[in-house]
Design a protein around this nucleic acid. Structure first.
Length: 286
DNA sequence: CTTCTTGTTACTGA
DNA sequence: ATCAGTAACAAGAA
């Protein structure tokens, strides 16, 4: 599940590799991923380059040079953007055979070919991701609908308290709401609540000042740390080089239902909340 | 075979 | 207006 740390990792990698590289061809193998007509999509991008790559929440925007347009990509659950230069067809670098990825494979739905011989593969097991060429207006619309960037300098404790105090909704739903805070998904929502010692069943309006502060700190701490570790590979996530993230074994609660809580030793429970699987420790989270 | 998984949107009903 | 819950999307794992 690419959330903010995973998307940011990919964006940082791609900035180094494909900015200013001329696109010479595009292979659309699965049409439904691309939300423009294929010929329009190709006509706009071929013989152009990207001058800037922007992340906003879980969205990626590739600004097309000398056009007031962007290539927008959302990876949803299982989308991957993997860059390979030259003739290389193997990514990964792991000795473990299972982790070696060869491209294109049956999950490769779009391929961008660059003039320098490098390629960018869009892979997506569940095929829910989106690629779309959008104009400035559409960009602005999506930008406006996204909430505050949780790692931005201007996201102060004060602002978090204002935001959370305005709402009367379940705390887990609050954290997952992209129009309030952009970029948190199921993994970092559960991890943040565990770190802050807050039960996922609580309401935003019921949290006291101390709890709000703890949650603010937990969110920032976890997103920063996960970014430092280049994200969490639970199943499908890979960085732009096809490598796994290194945050999986730092997780304290996500995916650990049925196992013992690292803090108190009691069994971690799982419920469905805000439409999502939610793991929590009933002893450590009140 | 069924059930579960996830991000987002759309929809219903309270 | 605000919020909770669910279906839908797809394919694979258990």
């Amino acid at each position: 599940m690419p959330e903010l740390p995973e998307v940011e990792t990919i964006v940082k990698d791609l900035r180094k590799k494909i900015v200013s590289q001329k696109i010479i061809d595009i292979d659309i193998r699965l049409k439904k991923i691309v939300k423009n007509k294929p010929d329009v999509f190709c006509r706009i991008l071929i013989n152009k380059s990207f001058q800037k790559i922007i992340r906003r929440g879980k969205y990626i925007f590739f600004q097309i040079k000398q056009e007031k347009k962007y290539l927008m990509i959302h990876l949803r659950m299982t989308g991957q953007l993997i860059y390979q230069k030259g003739d290389k067809i193997i990514a990964g670098g792991h000795s473990d055979r299972k982790n070696i990825l060869e491209f294109p494979n049956k999950q490769t739905h779009i391929i961008f070919y660059f003039k320098n011989g490098s390629r960018l593969f869009y892979n997506d097991q569940r095929q829910f991701g989106i690629l779309k060429i959008i104009n400035q207006e559409e960009f602005n619309l999506i930008d406006r609908k996204q909430g505050i960037e949780p790692l931005a300098d201007n996201f102060s404790l004060q602002k978090f308290k204002e935001l959370i105090s305005r709402k009367k909704k379940n705390i887990k739903a609050f954290l997952l709401d992209q129009s309030l805070i952009a970029g948190i998904g199921n993994i970092y929502a559960d991890e943040s609540l565990f770190k802050a010692g807050i039960s996922p069943f609580r309401k935003t309006s019921d949290l006291n000042e101390k709890e709000k502060t703890a949650l603010y700190k937990a969110v920032r701490y976890l997103l920063k740390k996960a970014l430092k570790y280049r994200g969490t590979t639970f199943n499908d996530y890979r960085d732009a080089y096809g490598r796994q993230g290194n945050f999986l074994n730092k997780l304290k609660i996500y995916g650990r239902d049925g196992k013992k809580c690292f803090r108190c030793g009691k069994e971690i429970k799982k419920v469905k909340l805000a439409g999502r699987g939610t793991r929590y420790c009933s002893y450590c989270q009140k």
